[in-house]
Simulated scan of single mutants.
Amino acid sequence: MTYNPDLLDRAKRHPEKQKNADRPMGKKPDWLRVRAPQGTVYKDTLDIVRGQKLTTVCEEAGCPNIGECWNKKHATFMIMGEVCTRACAFCNVATGKPEELDKYEPLRVGVAVEQMALKHVVITSVDRDDLDDCGADHFVKTIGAIRFKSPDTTVEILPGDFRGNIQSIDAVIGAKPDVFNHNLETVPRLYPTIRPGARYFRSLRLLQRVKDVDPSIFTKSGLMVGLGETKEEVAQVMDDMRAADIDFITIGQYLQPTPKHAPVEKFWTPEEFEGLERMARAKGFLMVSASPLTRSSHHAGEDFARLKAAREEKLAAKQATVQAAE
């Protein structure tokens, strides 16, 4: 047998997927081609990440925007290890039994944010269903460390669903992140095959809970398209998000990480993404980002500034309407 390190690495990262038959990955259309990472600033960002022994979802999930983001000193830190307890069919993060939490990780994240002089930072994590609180306290400590080391930095978090545990969710809300992001990922019909460890309405209730407890926190959620969903199903998810008072929706193209992952059923065209953006704006989201290369944390800093401006404009318009009525 010929030695193939890529196949061995894939088997180690995704042991639960090795029983799957290889699915053709197909050729990406021209609008999904990106330049390879390069440049001095990219290397500086890499050095800080390595120096603080941190993990980024940019690397772990194989994000196509890593070159652009790291050249702008934007990075999404992934806390609580590199191994996830769930096995979503779309995700390139390794699956298995995680190691114990690193109690010094929150401080190292705070130091890295300070060193990179970030105005806005995104913190995500693997799912830690092995922990009683699913990692909620680690999120709280990480937010606290960032506030301590870099108090002017705005903080966006992208956690899992905490298995719907209200105490864990409320603890993280109490740490007052500026943006609470939690992705629905796909339409409810596809959850059993694409996101089997999650529950669609549990994720919706989590985002609604954020608004119920602290309406000042912006909420955000994302969808991938290309997994076999219909436009009508996407429209229904948008309606469900608005019913949960979600402020910001992101929609991007699913890209198959390996032949063992869920196949791409369709590459949506840039024109179709423009149609989805128009639809979402018509439904009342404060912010919409929809394009083939859109990802949850792509342009997060710039988007946060626009999100604040959109809220202020909406509040001003509402106030003007009230005054006119008086």
Results as ranks from 00 to 15, higher is better:
181 N>H: 00
134 C>I: 00
211 K>S: 05
19 K>Q: 14
9 D>R: 15
162 F>Q: 09
41 V>C: 04
309 A>H: 09
72 K>V: 03
179 V>M: 00
98 P>G: 03
269 T>Y: 13
175 A>D: 03
314 K>Q: 09
237 V>Y: 02
133 D>Y: 02
60 E>Q: 10
93 V>T: 12
16 E>D: 14
291 S>W: 13
303 D>A: 13
301 G>D: 14
87 A>F: 11
147 R>F: 10
142 T>L: 12
49 V>A: 05
226 G>A: 06
94 A>I: 00
143 I>D: 13
311 R>I: 08
18 Q>Y: 09
30 D>K: 12
271 E>W: 04
197 G>V: 00
251 I>P: 01
200 Y>N: 04
267 F>D: 13
238 M>R: 04
76 T>V: 14
292 P>V: 13
264 V>G: 14
83 V>T: 15
238 M>H: 02
113 V>L: 07
244 A>E: 04
258 T>H: 04
267 F>P: 11
93 V>S: 03
11 A>Y: 08
285 F>M: 08
79 I>C: 10
316 A>S: 11
218 F>W: 02
68 E>G: 02
102 D>K: 03
164 G>M: 09
266 K>F: 07
85 T>D: 08
203 S>W: 06
245 D>T: 02
213 V>G: 06
284 G>T: 02
290 A>E: 15
48 I>C: 10
202 R>A: 03
151 P>D: 11
216 S>M: 08
262 A>F: 15
120 H>D: 12
292 P>E: 13
300 A>I: 06
169 I>M: 07
175 A>L: 00
89 A>H: 11
130 D>Y: 05
121 V>H: 03
67 G>T: 11
6 D>P: 00
269 T>I: 14
185 E>C: 01
232 E>W: 01
231 K>D: 09
122 V>Q: 09
315 L>F: 01
92 N>Y: 11
128 R>Q: 07
46 L>R: 13
71 N>H: 06
249 I>E: 04
177 P>K: 00
29 P>G: 11
